[in-house]
Design a binder for these strands. Structure first.
Lengths: 195, 195
DNA sequence: ACCTTTATAGCACGAGTGTGCTACTTTGAA
DNA sequence: TTCAAAGTAGCACACTCGTGCTATAAAGGT
């Protein structure tokens, strides 16, 4: 039998290297060679786990989504709807360096999504999943038995606000400080709960 | 005296070619050769107006900002604060194919901004200009003599909402239709005016 | 000890890139 | 008519890229 290596761990390691390269030099510079060097692995070894660059990048994008999902899963969701909504929403904002890096990677992939059909499919999936999650939060915030139309509208608004804040927090971190991000979001949830 | 050519027009033509290439293949594929071919111009000719690729891309980014600014300048700003705010804000959303393409280019440059200091400076400028414009709209919407803190908060929120909606309209146009974009925005302005 | 399977390593080819550079063409003032 | 300025054209070099490919190393069941 063959040499034993944890394949999933190896792939996760390489995805992390992809993230670091993207964060440092952008998605356009995430070449196979640079990722391999970043992971301190030979090109041949990398290509044993991802035979093409597309596979590598697609996996890395998917892994970002799963990383966020797992972080959200660790949250303690006991509390009032307002508390839960705030907890989840704040987790999605770039309030520290780690999450800012994460958002930067998400932006890079979002841009790539516009011209790469394969990435687009993955991205749409994450978008839809987050939208669904946010919809349940909104449903608990609004008055019981609110019409679907209101739910959809407020979910669109909350989702856009979160992504817009994340975008600003990453692109203009000097102006858009974590404090301001947090203030805008909690203020929005306050309005939602009182409407 | 030399051959006479409208230099500004030439540069604008090349910037438009850059936009088309970015829209079709992404910023990473906006090579000097491809842009020249897109503009039906030789490499040498292109490089007479932009001696390096960076100059070309920086000008193209700046030109996007100016294009938006000029579109906003043509709007008829007579009306109630609510009407003016809606007019301006809706102009910024990807409600038709042209503006969707524009937003796609903006997203591509936003991603590039994260790892390119030169682009970042230009981008920050546009961001700040838009933020200032939105602040005046918000000031007219809120009760007179509202504290600066409220103005800042609501401006952050509106700005993030607009950019978030634009992002969703471009990345997931099938789900996030122009109708939904418009509904979310007018609903937000409605709340803003009544708070 | 052997051998099959898996992992690691990296060469090499063709393609594409940015930019320095030279050559040619067109223009209009002198 | 002449000529300097300005525009157009594209070659060529050094480089990076993705990927097909072969070669070597390690490991554990038999």
């Amino acid at each position: 039998m063959p040499r034993v290596v944890d394949v999933d761990e190896r792939r996760a390691l390489l995805a992390a290297a992809v993230w670091r390269v993207i964060h440092r030099e952008g998605l356009a510079n995430a070449s196979v060679r640079k990722v391999a060097a970043e992971a301190q692995v030979s090109m041949g070894s990398l290509r044993h786990y991802f035979s093409t660059q597309n596979q590598l990048l697609q996996f890395s994008l998917q892994a970002v989504g799963e990383r966020v999902t797992q972080r959200l899963a660790t949250l303690d969701l006991t509390g009032t709807p307002r508390q839960v909504a705030e907890l989840v929403a704040l987790e999605l904002l770039p309030l520290d360096a780690d999450r800012r890096a994460e958002v930067e990677i998400w932006i890079a992939f979002s841009a790539a999504t516009l011209t790469d059909p394969d990435l687009r499919a993955l991205s749409d999936q994450s978008h839809e999943a987050l939208h669904t999650l946010l919809r349940t939060l909104v449903a608990d915030l609004l008055p019981p038995n609110s019409p679907d139309q209101d739910l959809d509208l407020e979910t669109d608004r909350l989702h856009a606000l979160i992504d817009g804040l994340a975008l600003h927090g990453a692109t203009t971190p000097t102006q858009t400080t974590p404090t301001r991000l947090q203030a805008a979001l909690t203020h929005h949830l306050e309005h939602l709960a009182r409407s």
